[in-house]
Design a protein around this nucleic acid. Sequence first.
DNA 1: GTTACCAAAATTGGCGCCAATTTAGGATAC
DNA 2: GTATCCTAAATTGGCGCCAATTTTGGTAAC
Lengths: 223, 223
Amino acid sequence: MTEMHDVTETAANDRDVTDLVLEDILTGVLPAGTWLKQIDLEKRYDCTRPEVRRALDRLSQKRLVEHVPNRGYHVYQPDGRRAQEVSDIRVILETAVADRMVERATPESIARLRQLASHFDRMTMVGTVLEHYEANLAFHRELLLLSGNNELVDLVSEIRQRTSSAPVSQWRTRARVERSAREHHMMVDALEARDVADLKRLIEAHIRQTGDAAPAESAARQA
Amino acid sequence: MTEMHDVTETAANDRDVTDLVLEDILTGVLPAGTWLKQIDLEKRYDCTRPEVRRALDRLSQKRLVEHVPNRGYHVYQPDGRRAQEVSDIRVILETAVADRMVERATPESIARLRQLASHFDRMTMVGTVLEHYEANLAFHRELLLLSGNNELVDLVSEIRQRTSSAPVSQWRTRARVERSAREHHMMVDALEARDVADLKRLIEAHIRQTGDAAPAESAARQA
DNA sequence: GTTACCAAAATTGGCGCCAATTTAGGATAC
DNA sequence: GTATCCTAAATTGGCGCCAATTTTGGTAAC
């Protein structure tokens, strides 16, 4: 069994144990393969066994953890194929609504997105892994809200958690982080310019983490 | 509180209580708005309280039922906006992979789909609501498997359960049922003819339940 | 050093129980 | 007839407990 280390902080009462465990999985505190002992989680999150069980059941329903009868639950190993498939789905969904996002963008929403992109920049510099991750989510959620389809916004949020969009695996290098930050701003640029094709291209490159999407003049703009 | 009627059959041991409750919701036995009393479900499905609670928690996570603290759980009311949004998502996803489906279709898979379309025809005539529903799911799952993206197949299965794709609301008229049956065969025709555009058009019309998608000669083919 | 066995310790799984909360029905006042 | 109040009944929520199962560590045999 992979060992788990106790933490000293008490459970935050406004957040469910499910959220706390999920956070620790996504930030790498509970790495892939870790066996999650119920009695240890009770202590770690300062909660009762039934709460732990509910959290674990929920996470297993989301396929973040696997339940092995009579042995317990462990964090799923990364699966490259699943990750690829989830990225493909995200590309399909997010590019399909690019025209709607452009059509519905207002100066206020553009300003808001610019602000969130800058916030991500700052978290890149001074934030924790979690703050960084959450800044990224905030940006993308605000962008997707422009689609006008709430179910799609929620769905993308859900599926992102399933695989390699988790922070421990998403940004492997400093260069990748910086590129992501630039891409955020470029997406806002494309939105402002009402350039649907550019926005689609950026979204796809961003999700797949491929290519160099940066025209030189757009990069200069951030300086 | 909306009253629930007891059933006389015992729980099928190979299926989880979650599945049983879900089936009763989807087939209209437990209509929208019904309060699901834990002690009644225990009797209905011949199981223990913890099993009922787990099932209800899972269904509430899927937003099929709503949990009201200290009052219990009730089946969600239909929400037209959500239904529309889910249909939009399905159209995006399923049409996006139409080219992949055409590209990957083999004579064997086409024969299999033809068989499943015929099975749906038969269930339309002689099957129960549930058998009919499951025949539809089987057809669509087999079709989507041609995309090669398992996550997408699973995801579409999941989101279909959320709203008006449930059998109680999907087929309101005999004519609608018959059109769905015809559309299945036409999708297989398009696949066989490797006509991506036609397949996309059929898939969209099918999901939205709009229009008359039938060219006269295709309809004659089924006679 | 490796393998097999066994007992103790650790952990999971699930049930029963009861406190807390809500609902339902009857009585009373207007 | 309607509104309010009160109490008993019904139901939910959550905890403690223990049987069942697995893991761990020590010992013996090869």
